[in-house]
Design a protein around this nucleic acid. Structure first.
Lengths: 106, 106
DNA sequence: AACAAATACTTCGTGATATGATGTATTGCG
DNA sequence: CGCAATACATCATATCACGAAGTATTTGTT
């Protein structure tokens, strides 16, 4: 999938993945995979960015001898998802513009 | 509108704007404006990129004493629009993922 | 026991890109 | 004359996705 097209979706996908239940890096990637592919370096970059933006909080926890960082969504994170939903109308109108012009030639 | 969300749409919007009729920078911005805002520096950067990628060709022409560069879409440009349309299914599945998870909380 | 694969997180460098700021130059209008 | 509109160009900057490479443990598999 085109990188540029992904850019506007990745942050919201990650937030969605932790919305109903706190989750950790490795699991987030696997949960999102059916919808969108994301490398580890990309995910951890995003998680750091979202933490800095206070859209999620982090809690470190031991699990089977391995370190795990659990991410928890904040109100700002929830609002981010709402904003995305509201902006989707604009996105669809742009999509319609592309499709409409297209049809004139078919 | 969120910059990241725009990134995947701008190129295709510009190509769509010149698809049915050759056009020039200033007009493209005005035609697209109802759908998506774009500064001049952004547009000319995009036009140069699309020219380099051979998705459009340029023809300079005099018009009322003023210089005008007319942009004409190529087959590769048309294919770019087709690819965008095909990728839209993936985009919508991601959108559904966000919406679906959302509904579980409402 | 040896080895691979899976789990889990981190850091660094790079290339792509949207945009503001700034500049040049002409036409048209009041 | 002055200003907005027309029309294009360049530069510096900040953001960001990603590959590469690394560290470390656990869980199969042979």
């Amino acid at each position: 999938m085109d990188i540029q097209l992904k850019r506007g979706l990745l942050d919201v996908c990650v937030l969605t993945a932790i919305k109903n239940e706190d989750s950790y890096g490795y699991k987030i990637i696997k949960d999102i995979k059916p919808y969108i592919e994301m490398s580890e370096s990309t995910l951890y970059t995003i998680l750091k960015r979202l933490e800095f933006a206070e859209m999620l909080t982090v809690r470190t926890s031991e699990h089977g001898g391995r370190l795990r960082k659990y991410y928890h969504i904040t109100d700002a994170g929830l609002k981010r998802i709402e904003d995305f939903k509201n902006e989707w109308r604009e996105v669809m109108s742009i999509y319609q513009f592309v499709i409409k012009e297209e049809e004139q030639n078919e």
